[in-house]
Each structure stands twice: as structure tokens, then as C-alpha cells.
Amino acid sequence: MKSGTLELIGISRRFGQTIALDNLNLTIGAGELVALLGPSGCGKTTALRIVAGLESSDAGVVKLKDRDVTNLSAHLRNMGMVFQSYSLFPNLSAVENVEFGLKMRKVEKGNRRKQALELLELVGLTTQSKRFPHQLSGGQQQRVALARALAIQPEVLLLDEPLSALDAQVRTNLREEIRRLQLSLGTTTLFVTHDQEEAMAISDRVGVMSNGHLEQIDTPDVLYNNPASTFVANFVGTMNHIPAEQQGDLVSIFGKSIRVKNPNGISGSVSVLVRPESIEVSRAAGSGNAKVITRSFLGASSQIICQTPEGAVIQALMPSNGSGDLHPGEDVALSVMLSEVLVAHV
């Protein structure tokens, strides 16, 4: 296996007045797939382009297998990259596109054609090998781009929002295929996306970025269940903001006191952050603390939207078979099924 550890140490980059990256530190283990997730303009693409050598950094070091590659020219880095879209060379057929990197490495003609066809087979495009990019669908183009990036047997695979221009169905299929290939080849991979579902679905670890720095980097489970900051909590998954009063390190919500995970020693009005599935809804005619506004059936689970007498709108997610009788206008009792909560100070 050629893949190795990729390290970003203290990377900073500004564009004029804007700080794109502010002392970014990130280590990706050999064979690991790490996603960088964040809103547009958070610096994730800049980080990826610095790794690829397509952008220069103002400060910091990029290391590949303990080798400093910071000042190495992009065409010498041996990293495969898949771009958002339109990156296939329009004057070359699918197989010629895949061969391109091998040709640059002076691989002999018959040999490189054989390798390119093998890769096209791997992404399921054997029959389309002679087609030109404009004769391929968006999904097929991105598969060719993936095959092209893998053809050079890269030490690192870089994915720059490769799915964002595709339809929902194609997107789901292709992301699973990317993961399958990545696992079987064991290629160290950095994946940049603004779609949290995508990042959570296929990554070993996800780094959430905002304003040029990493807010938190963890496995998808930890990120979802144990967000380190309110930014991460809001960005990953759906989150309720329930107004409540905080006293010391306790907060009172729906008549129950719960420990605050991030007390800060302040008392007063706060928003309690609770995921929809951590809210329990039960019928309580005449004695509830909220009313049902709508119920949406989503299959195995249902989404219930309630409103408290104070006007706060709260979303809950519960198994469908226990929620069939929650009609709009119904009085319900809400409670939080957690022993510890994050609060946001307002």
C-alpha cells in the first residue's frame, strides 16, 4: 500500500483582508477518510487546494508520510484530485482522460491503456470508455474523474465537493461507491463538502470548520451526540433551541432540572439545544405544556411539530407506530430524555 499519513501543521492563508485559514492543524491517518465540513467560505476548499499544491499557504507545513511537501510543485505531488464538475478534458475520450496521468508519468502505451480500462471497469463504465465527456451524464463524468484520479495510484485522494452538481439519487449511489473503492484501495482521503449528511455517511472522521479553523474533529457519532460547541451542534443534524432559565449549572426545562454541560458560571435566559429524537411527546389532554401543530409521516418515524404557550416551536422525532393519535391541536406533554444538555447563551 502506497498511502500514508497526511499532516497539516499550522496552515494559515489570507486573501486580502479575509482570513481563509487560521492556523489549521489536521492529521489524517494512513487509509483514513476524513471529511472537512462547513458552510461556504469557511476555508475548507482552500485547505484542500493547499494540500494539492494548487494554492500556496502563508504559513505552515504540509507533510506526507513525514516528508515535507509544502514547497513541492503540484505536478510532482502524486495526489489524485476529483473536482466539483467539468474537470474532464473535453478533447479526450473517457479512457484517454483516465490515461492522462499515466502518460505524464511516461507509462508505456499498451500498459497504460490496460490500467485505464481496469479502472473504468472498477467504476462501471467499461462500455462508455470511448465516449467524450459531453456524451456522458454528470454522474458518469464524475466516475471517470474518480478513475482518472485513482489511475496514478495516488498517495492521497482529494475530493472537492465531487457530488454537489449531481441529482440526489446519483449522489447517494456515487458516494457509497467512493467509500467502497476507498476502503478496498486503502487510500488516505480528504473529502471537502458542505453537505453534512454526505460527510457523516462515508467518513471515518468529520472535521467541522468555521471561519478558517477547525471547530471539532471526531467520528460522526461523537460529533452528532456530543458536539463540542453550539456551532457544531447547529451545523450537524437538526437542533431545537428551547428557551429556558439557567441557575448555576442547572437548567429548568419542561418542569425538570437538567445539568448543563457548558455552564460558564452564568445565570439567566438561555437556549437549550436538544435534538428532535431526544424529545418525548405524550398525550395529556387538558394538562399538557404544548400543542401539536403538524405531524408528518416519514416512514418508520414521524416528525411532530409542537408549540409551547410562550410561542417556542419544537420539533420532535418519534417512532410512527406510537404517534398515530397525535393530531393537530392536541394537548401534549413534552419532556427531554437527557441527563445533560448544551446551552447557548442569548
Binding site: H75, F100, A149
Partner: peptide
């Protein structure tokens, strides 16, 4: 497109190539 320039560079092509 800039993507073609970047992709070529990434695959090992010098600007001349």
C-alpha cells in the same frame, strides 16, 4: 476552464505539457 488547468497539474502535467 481553470479546472482543466488544475486537473492537469494535479495529474502531473507541467504548464507546457
Amino acid at each position: 476552464r481553470n479546472e482543466w488547468r488544475d486537473a492537469a497539474k494535479n495529474l502531473g502535467a507541467t504548464p507546457r505539457k
